[in-house]
């Protein structure tokens, strides 16, 4: 009977300790495997990042990044002098801030309510249904909402009609448009955002509830003194991280829902960049606005990471 032969020579695994030539001989496949990703990132991520220089130039496509004349901060100055820009920044801030608030509290409340559901199939069905809208794009949802919110016989206005409410111009009145944008955004994502809180609740030590019950706490007091403290850290993390989105009012959604009737109340930085920059070919000006937006976003993210670390001990790196 012959012993099966196993290769036990680990020499093949050892890396040379000196000499980059010998070292490269062993590891070149690893570099090659990274090559496509590195090249693609260089061309489609790094070059556009460097392309931000056109915000400080008067960019002309036929002159290129290198040849276009420098104009310093002119575009930024123009941004603040442009008649509409204050209104656009205000729209963006109002919509984004309202979204941050609703998207912070609605999922928590939903998670707390769902946690009280005891019937298994009921809970599972509810979860399946509320997570679904997250995966549908704003094109599909835009088509659906334009139809159901229509002022001429949309199903929502028909329903309100049976309650004796006059038809509401959800998508063609500026103030109602903001309201619609905030509510539909919450509708799309409240379920999905609740997952993280449901996970935190599920991870709570059950003996805490038992102890609270023995001490005579009723359900409400248990929620107040056990569940809420259990989800507080993750809530603080979510809340502080969302600060980075103060200038992010949701391009996909607004671009699919808005129309010229609501530009005054519904036009945001991103839609403005698209209309002025690409359709109007003012590349430098639009890049300057986009850069201004990312800069503010970046500063907010840095601040909020620090706050998240200070309040909740949360670090991503």
């Amino acid at each position: 009977m012959t012993e099966p032969v196993f290769n036990t020579d680990k020499k093949a695994l050892r890396l040379p300790t000196r000499g980059w030539r010998a070292y490269l001989q062993k590891t070149w496949p690893l570099h090659v495997l990274l090559l496509p990703a590195v090249l693609l990132a260089l061309v489609y991520n790094y070059i556009p990042i460097m392309g931000i220089v056109i915000a400080f130039q008067d960019y002309k496509p036929w002159l290129g990044f290198g040849g276009s004349p420098w104009v310093g901060l002119d575009h930024f100055r123009y941004l603040f002098e442009y008649p509409d820009s204050m209104q656009i920044i205000r729209n963006t801030l109002i919509i984004a801030f309202a979204k941050i608030m609703t998207n912070m509290f609605v999922p928590v409340i939903f998670a707390l309510l769902l946690n009280e559901i005891r019937i298994k199939w009921f809970k599972r069905t509810a979860q399946t249904l509320v997570y679904l809208p997250h995966f549908l794009s704003w094109v599909i949802l835009g088509g659906i909402f334009v139809d159901i919110l229509s002022i001429r016989g949309g199903i929502v206005n028909r329903f309100l009609g049976t309650l004796g409410i006059d038809p509401i111009a959800f998508l063609s009145n500026g103030d109602w448009f903001r309201f619609t944008v905030i509510v539909t955004d919450a509708w799309k994502d409240f379920g999905f955002s609740a997952i993280i809180f449901l996970a935190a609740i599920a991870g709570t030590n059950p003996s805490l509830y038992e102890a609270a019950e023995i001490d005579g706490a009723n359900r409400w007091q248990q929620v107040l003194h056990v569940t809420l403290p259990a989800i507080a850290p993750i809530f603080i993390v979510v809340a502080t991280l969302s600060l980075g989105r103060v200038l992010d009012a949701g391009f996909d959604q607004i671009f699919n829902l808005y129309n010229p009737l609501v530009y005054s109340k519904g036009d945001i930085i991103d839609t403005f960049v698209y209309r002025v920059g690409l359709l109007g070919s003012q590349y430098s000006f639009a890049t300057a606005i986009g850069f201004f937006k990312s800069l503010i976003g970046f500063i907010m993210i840095v601040i909020s990471y620090r706050l998240a670390y200070k309040w909740a001990g949360y670090r991503i790196f």
Binding site: Y44, N45, I47, P48, G51, I52, D270, Y274, Y283, G290
Partner: peptide, 15 residues
């Protein structure tokens, strides 16, 4: 590249 983006216009110009 996860943290920084060139934004709409520069990406469009590169593409």
């Amino acid at each position: 590249i996860m943290l920084f983006h060139g934004g709409l216009i520069p990406t469009y110009l590169v593409v």
